[in-house]
Design a binder for these strands. Structure first.
Lengths: 230, 230
DNA sequence: GTTTTCGTCATAAATAATTCATACAATCGT
DNA sequence: ACGATTGTATGAATTATTTATGACGAAAAC
């Protein structure tokens, strides 16, 4: 489970601690020194999680969170707020501004990592390494394998990621654009029609066990993975 | 998706290429030859997107971007930066130039258009995703499904939008032209009678569960969705 | 160097949207 | 009550749009 994490923190000491610990756990780290910095960085990057200090020079952490929640592209990114112990009473308010969790300084690296994992699991299930199952189709991120009714299926890399995303976000329609953003990545430029092709490849790979029926076309809207066939 | 685009570029050749390509895709183009020009143009116009050359006579592209980001009125406009290949290494430095994306010269028109599209689509406000229910008829925008008393119903794209509109605006009559405005979009050139046809299709789709009775004709006025039958 | 995998394209196939012609129903004036 | 008039319903034809699919060259992985 490796994620890209944006750290918004002005104290160099804490920055270092975070960079080190996150790095240890295989995450990529981007650092912003203040709110403006963060907003501007976010224009070009799309991290999987944001660690946001409450007290920042200039814009406060809450302001930053509000800005993020107000942007359609960024809205879905989980935010963990870092607060000093004296600010603890503000906790409740912090959770109100769109933070998914908060943690008080000083924090133990262990606690931090645990919370990060929890938040990622909740907001970006495809980032975790938990096995998923939908309608008899099983996908195990750890062994990187897919089974249809016990039979191993053979998928290409992109088809695997696509299926993983669908399985962790079942019963929900995604437009081609959204799929490109989530499965291919934020700044890639590929034709929307390319999605069609990979959907087809995914379907024919799942055909072996008949699970291609799970991938449904929603005309005019996109695609959906659903256990309830229609 | 047609937009007004400000091109800030000093080389006449590239200017032409951009004007042509953007025009081809239905966009309106405004051109500025340098930074000062751009700033002053922006006083009177509010484009949907700015294509900004990195190297400009006088003010650099970054300066222009900073000015734009510092202006409350202009802050929200997405910026795509045009950089020469030799400047490429600056990319990695982080996209912290205030740009939403960048593209290196020479660029393919295809790539340019793809990136423009990607940037523009992020700004599109998403419609509400709350499920709606009226008289036993349920519509879920997230999974893009409709259920009549638990049974899944099959609607075409336009019928889906039409029903969604009705369900979020129940107990109220809408004329055909209002429906055209709200469901089809403003100022679409379509016969009013076309609404009748889609009403019929919606009704026959809802017939399966008997919910076609919810769609009521109000002679001389239009149509209404109502849970109280008459 | 061979094999996979990607992304794109061209084309076929499927499904929808719009219009049109006509049938039907309600309303109005007499 | 009756015919005229106006508004609505509906089936069919026509166009337009979307999606599916097979093939191909380029790039990446092995």
């Amino acid at each position: 489970m490796s994620a890209t994490i944006l750290v918004v923190e002005d104290e160099p000491g804490i920055q270092e601690v975070l960079k080190f610990n996150l790095g240890q756990h295989g995450h990529d780290v981007i650092v912003a020194n203040d709110g403006e910095d963060a907003i501007s960085l976010l224009r070009g990057a799309l991290p999987d999680l944001i660690l946001l200090d409450w007290m920042l020079p200039g814009m406060t952490g809450i302001d930053v969170a509000k800005r993020i929640r107000g942007d359609a592209r960024l809205r879905g990114i989980p935010i963990i707020m870092l607060t000093a112990r004296t600010e603890e009473r503000d906790k409740v308010q912090g959770l109100d501004t769109g933070a998914d969790d908060y943690i008080t300084k000083p924090f133990s690296p262990r606690e931090l990592m645990a919370r990060i994992k929890a938040v990622l699991r909740r907001r970006a299930p495809e980032m975790t390494e938990d096995p998923v199952e939908v309608g008899g189709l099983k996908l195990d991120p750890i062994s990187h394998r897919v089974f249809g009714d016990g039979k191993a299926l053979d998928l290409g890399p992109t088809e695997f990621r696509l299926l993983h995303f669908f399985m962790t976000h079942a019963e929900r329609v995604y437009s081609r654009s959204q799929l490109l953003d989530h499965v291919w990545g934020d700044h890639v430029f590929v034709e929307e029609r390319t999605v069609d092709v990979h959907i087809r490849r995914l379907r024919s790979a799942l055909e072996t066990s008949g699970h291609d029926r799970l991938i449904q076309t929603v005309r005019g809207a996109g695609y959906r993975l659903s256990a309830t066939l229609n």
